[in-house]
C-alpha cells in the first residue's frame, strides 16, 4: 500500500459513516418518541378527530393548503385556522364553496355532511393545539 488515499478506505469510511449517522438518527428518533406525548396533544385525539383526519386526507386538502407549514402553497395555512377563524366560520366556508367569483382561486364543494364537517373541525382544533415551538409567527399563518 504505497498510496495513502485508497478506494478501499474510502469505502470503509462510507459504510462506517453511513451506519454511524443512521444510528445517531435512530437514537434521536427514540428520544423524540419519548418526548412527544408532552407536546403532540395526543391526549385529545378522539374518534371525531381520527375521522376528521381521515376526511382531511381523503379529500386531498393538502393538495392546496398547508398544515403546520407542509403541503401545497396555493391556499391558506390551516394548522391554526381554528384559532384564526373559529368553528362557525369554517363550517360556513366549507358549505359555501365554490364561491364562483370569476378569476378567483376556487375551492371545490366536497359534499360533506354536518357531522363530517364537525369532525373535520375537531381535527383542525386538535392540530391547532400541538406544541409547534410557537410557529406560525402570527395568526395569518
Amino acid at each position: 500500500m504505497s498510496a495513502t488515499f485508497t478506494k478501499s478506505m474510502a469505502r470503509n469510511v462510507f459504510y462506517g459513516g453511513g451506519v454511524f449517522f443512521f444510528l445517531l438518527f435512530l437514537a434521536l428518533t427514540f428520544d423524540t418518541m419519548k418526548v412527544l406525548p408532552k407536546r403532540d396533544n395526543s391526549q385529545n385525539i378522539t374518534p371525531a378527530v381520527a375521522h376528521g383526519k381521515k376526511l382531511w386526507e381523503t379529500n386531498n386538502c393538502i393538495g392546496c393548503h398547508t398544515l403546520l407549514g407542509e403541503g401545497a402553497y396555493f391556499a391558506p395555512e390551516l394548522g391554526n385556522v381554528y384559532v384564526r377563524r373559529g368553528p362557525d366560520f369554517i363550517k360556513a366556508w366549507i358549505k359555501g364553496q365554490p364561491t364562483g367569483v370569476p378569476g378567483r382561486r376556487q375551492m371545490p364543494q366536497f359534499n360533506l355532511s354536518d357531522m363530517d364537517i364537525d369532525d373535520l373541525i375537531a381535527f383542525l382544533k386538535y392540530a391547532s393545539e400541538i406544541n409547534t415551538n410557537k410557529w406560525p409567527p402570527n395568526i395569518e399563518g
Binding site: V13, G18, F21, T32, V35, L36, E70, N131, W135
Partner: peptide, 25 residues
Amino acid sequence: YVIITMTLVTGIIGTGHHYYWIGTP
C-alpha cells in the same frame, strides 16, 4: 465514495430541518 459519505453524514441528521415546527422537540 467520499462524496456520498458526506451526503449521508450531513443528510441523515439533516432530516432535522423538517422537525422544527411540526410538534417535535
